[in-house]
């Protein structure tokens, strides 16, 4: 078995340990999973409330907004489930328990990603997927096999982009252990941003979300292509297909940041 296989297996094992730990408090697990579903659902309820007063937001109908909402929430939920607790790394460094990760024969990143693996987060994924399914059924798109594949790739790519942001946020904590909230503004804040059509926002904000922190590739650009709409920045058509490349690039950069973070920790011990 290769090292990579070992690392993945170790991830599964650690996650399974956390799941079993959670099951020691079964009622709490059920409540928090439902709560996770509901917190996420409330965002959509707010959108429904908005649409009880209007027919279109920024020129987008409710099913179209549901498509945006569903893709970003599902992607975000996946990344949050698989990597969301990486932002505990700052706390681990502060209370000294981070050292344990460094003396085990499993990559630190795997251990950090699986740390306190929270199965309850499937609540958010489930909610996002439900809204996505509803949106897919109701939008005015002819769902050819190619388009379906495109949508699946979009959700996976989105998860990878969010994962890269989570990882960068975790790496940042090696230098500023208290700053986990900064990462939140890009992850949670980004997820909220992407729930709404880009036409709602100021051009500078959309530009920032395209070129600086390229969250636009999570769902905006690909969804606009699916819906056959122009994007407000008038990017060339192939931009909608750049998601996977952008995701890989971001993951690479975050990986470098993470390595630099570990290196810094190992030379400063803090």
């Amino acid at each position: 078995m290769g090292e990579r296989g070992h690392a993945l297996r170790a991830y599964g094992l650690i996650a399974a340990m956390w799941i079993r730990s959670t099951m020691a408090y079964r009622l709490s697990f059920v409540l928090t999973a439902l709560g996770n579903f509901a917190v996420s659902a409330l965002d959509f309820v707010a959108i429904l409330l908005m649409f009880s007063h209007i027919d279109a937001l920024g020129g987008f109908t409710l099913p179209e907004v549901a498509l945006l909402y569903g893709t970003t929430c599902t992607s975000f939920g996946l990344a949050d489930l698989l990597l969301g607790n990486a932002d505990r790394v700052g706390r681990r460094v502060r209370d000294g328990t981070f050292d344990q990760f460094l003396v085990r024969p499993v990559p630190v990143l795997v251990q950090v990603a699986a740390d306190r693996f929270a199965l309850r987060r499937i609540g958010r994924i489930g909610q996002g997927a439900l809204v996505l399914a509803w949106g897919v059924a109701r939008v005015d798109v002819e769902w050819t096999p190619g388009r379906v594949l495109f949508a699946v790739v979009m959700v996976v790519t989105g998860a990878a982009i969010f994962a890269a942001v989570f990882l960068a946020g975790a790496a940042f904590q090696f230098w500023a252990a208290d700053a986990s909230e900064v990462a939140n503004s890009f992850t949670f804040g980004g997820c909220t941003l992407l729930q709404y059509p880009p036409t709602v926002f100021a051009k500078e904000l959309v530009r920032g979300a395209t070129f600086v922190v390229p969250l636009a590739f999570v769902n905006w650009l690909p969804a606009l292509w699916l819906l056959g709409r122009d994007d407000p920045l008038h990017l060339p058509g192939w931009a909608a297909f750049c998601g996977p490349a952008v995701a890989l690039l971001l993951l690479g950069l975050s990986g470098l940041a993470w390595r630099a973070g570990i290196r810094s920790y190992r030379s400063t011990g803090s």
Binding site: M50, D55, L57, E181, Y196, V200, A202
Partner: peptide
């Protein structure tokens, strides 16, 4: 640092919500 990070987050969310509200109040 946590306070500064929190301020940053609140500001980012403020911008996101502000634009959606503008769109909403534009319609109604």
């Amino acid at each position: 640092i946590a306070t500064a990070a929190g301020v940053f987050t609140n500001t980012v969310f403020g911008f996101v919500l502000a634009y959606t509200f503008i769109a909403l109040w534009h319609e109604r």
